[in-house]
Design a protein around this nucleic acid. Structure first.
Lengths: 125, 125
DNA sequence: CATTGCAGACTACAATTGTCAACTGAAATT
DNA sequence: AATTTCAGTTGACAATTGTAGTCTGCAATG
């Protein structure tokens, strides 16, 4: 995990992180609750547990106002880049190109994707 | 998970799978045990548990000879391709190209990788 | 100001995961 | 044939994860 993290962000917790990443500013539980109750059908208690766990593992910071406001400590980029490298280490023996080869050969990429990637690598120095 | 799987292969179990994937033929516990005891420092009991769990979740098949011989049901390619798509779904909103963009922009690729990928996409129809 | 609603803290509980020990019966060894 | 060695099975136990209930005190609202 990103080394600022005590331990891994779990799947459920990740849903909370996604919401916080999308938000421009820190959010109070009220807002987080509303959205996740709606989108995930979770009970308020569940949502509060997830937030508390994220705070305790250092992925989310709380800021005292009238009520706590929560915001991500690690960025989405940091996390996704870590998760990707972790996958590469665990499954592709550390070889990033093997990951991409796998995508290409297992039709994980659309024609559009491939076109775009061709461009990407053309420009790339 | 690959839909032939009852549930996800865990990290420890994956070590067993890797060994089985590397092997040409089915292996008896003796051989699996020797290697993992060596490479992972696991107790025989641990290794036997992992094998049993893999069998019960359908990732490994056992073949009765004098003693059981074990071989993978899902291939390494199937698994890694599934794991990759799963990552893309969970973290990159289903967009494979975002994964690759993340790799490129977070220096997850060496110059060599990039060169090779440029070739890959040049040839690619 | 009394009432209500909910944030925050604590507790709970089943399922999964990482590790491993004990037992049992068959195969190998003496 | 008696002994030893494991494979295979079952059980175990702590930590993590998914999901949620309860309680307490403050803040908004009538």
């Amino acid at each position: 995990m990103p080394d600022n993290l005590a331990s891994k962000i779990t799947d459920s917790e990740l849903e909370v992180m996604k919401l916080l990443w999308r938000a421009k500013d820190a959010l109070p539980v009220t807002v987080i609750r509303e959205q996740l109750q709606e989108s995930k059908g979770w009970e308020p208690a569940t949502i509060k547990t997830l937030i508390a766990r994220l705070v305790s593992k250092g992925a989310v910071r709380q800021e005292k106002r009238n009520v706590f406001y929560y915001s991500p400590v690690i960025t989405e980029k940091e996390y996704s880049s870590w998760a990707t490298k972790d996958l590469i280490a665990r499954i592709y023996n550390g070889k990033a190109r093997d990951l991409i080869a796998s995508l290409v050969s297992s039709d994980g990429l659309s024609q559009d994707d491939i076109a775009e990637l061709r461009d990407m690598f053309k420009v790339e120095e």
